[in-house]
Each structure stands twice: as C-alpha cells, then as structure tokens.
Amino acid sequence: MYKSLADAIRDAEASGRTLSATALALESKDQGRTVDDIRSALRRALEVMRSAVERGLEGDLRSASGLVGGDAALVAKSSAGPMSNTLFSDVLARALAVQEVNAAMGVIVAAPTAGGAGVLPAVLTGLARNRKIGDEAVIDALATAGLIGAVVAERASLSGAEGGCQAETGAAAGMAAGAATEMLGGTPSQVGHAVALTMQGLLGLVCDPLGGLVELPCVFRNATGAALALAGIEMALAGITFAIPVDEVIDVMGEIGRNMDVRYRETAGGGLAATPTGRRLAKERLVQIRTAPR
C-alpha cells in the first residue's frame, strides 16, 4: 500500500480516479487478489460494523469490569441536548455503541484497532443513513479509510502502547474524516485536508485507560473522536486547506508518540488512570474481574 498520502492523491488526480479506486487497484496488485474479492471482505466488515452498532444501541451490555455500558442508548434516546436527534448525536451514539460491544468482548471490526473501532462505523454508517448513501459507496469509503490507516501505520504507529491514543482514536478519526469526505463527493486533495484537519486536533492525546482496560475513557474517546472527524469533514468540504501537508501531520504524530512518556502509553501509569478516582475504581473493578465466576 502507499506510504505517503501525497503520492496516493497525486496518482488519483493524475488518473482522474477516486482515492478508493486508486487504493483498491494497488491493494489488488500488492496482494494478488481481485478488487471484487477485496470489496467483499470490506462488505463483510461493513456488516459486522452495522451489527455492532445495533447490538450496542440495545443498551443492555456491560463491560467485564462494569465500568461502561448502556450509554449509547442514553444518547440515542435523549432529546435534552442542543444536538439531540441530529446527525451529530446519532454519530456519537453509534461510536459509543460499538465501543460498548468491544468492551463486553463482543465482535467488532478493528479499524484500525479495537480501541478505536467505534469511530469509523459511527461516521460512515451515520452519514450513510442520514444522506441515504448506498452500501457500494460506503464500501469504497472503507477502502479509502484503509489507505489512510496504512499510511499512518507505515509513517507513525497505530498502537496506543507505542503512540498513545492519538495513534488509535486519532488515526481512526483521520481515517473516518478522509473516508467520509470522499463519500460525500470531496476531491482526493480535500480528503487529505480532512485527515490533516482532524488529526491536528488529536495530536498529543494520551492513552490512559483505567486499569489498562479498553473501557474508560476509550468508549467516550471514540465518541469525541467521531465528533472531531465531523469537524474535519465540515472544514475540508468547505474548502479549508491545512497548511501543513497531511504526511507531515502523520509524521509528527509518530514523533510525539515516540517521545511520549511511557505512563501515557496504555500502561495505566498516568492521565485519567492515575487520578485518585481512576486508581480507586481500577482497583475495585480489577478485583471484581478476578473474583467473578468465569
């Protein structure tokens, strides 16, 4: 796959194709699989994503520790907020839903990781429903998301243990923003700006889950990550160009991750995990996990 989004955007523009078509063609060549075969794998991913959204919205799931669960349904049913019953609140609810399924050891699609798995399905399926976009276009968008994630994997990292949350929900938000920008008719160059505009807002984000569990704040980080992706899409489609090239934004995310203290890289040694309440809750809940009947 491409190691630079600039290269992918240049190839797409030169051939008059979308980034998804460009990425699918290269993937087909790289992996010796037909484009149809790759798209059917993405179709399965989309089905699993939709099932996870629906499962989470039922509202009855609880995580192993009992720290998270049921909040997706709260947002979905609420009419109290300024954004209630809009695309925005729907996307938030979907992101929470998938992460609640994940925390309960349910089946999800890691995209790019399990810890950030709520963002992409939330943004893409939420927008597809809102704009009545068919599955084929959503599958194309998943290919674009895969391209963006592959570039982040090559240039930076997708692991919270290596790069903090910016490498997980940060990368997921960049992928979702770029993919949705293409799905809504943006040019390849606008896709690049959407990624940059979204990821710049998540640079430096630490990975600080209570007890090291992919629960709190991960479930909520997916919702706020999805919200920032919507912001990035909105700005890019309005025609905003971000002055720092997207590859350099990704590079600096990697650099920040490498310099990040180990306490902030999924070790539960810092951030929210190390607050007095964070420590107390983690201790109580881990005891609960250890003593619970399996």
């Binding site: 796959m1 990425a23 699918l24 993937e27 790289d30 992996q31 790759i38 794998a41 993405l42 399965r44 991913a45 699993v48 995580s63 399924v101 994940n102 925390a103 309960a104 050891m105 349910g106 089946v107 999800i108 699609v109 890691a110 995209a111 790019p112 990781t113 399990a114 810890g115 798995a117 992409l120 998943l142 290919a143 998301a145 895969g146 391209l147 994630g149 592959a150 994997a153 090559e154 997708l158 992928m175 569990l213 992919v214 629960e215």
Partner: peptide, 16 residues
C-alpha cells in the same frame, strides 16, 4: 501493510 489489516480483523474485543 494491507488495506485489510487496517479495516480488520473482525475480532472479539476489547483490544486488537
């Protein structure tokens, strides 16, 4: 890196 490594795996949570 393959595209399908990024959009996937389909997996039991919680951590890839």
């Amino acid at each position: 890196v393959s595209l399908l490594d990024i959009i996937g795996p389909v997996m039991v949570g919680p951590s890839s």
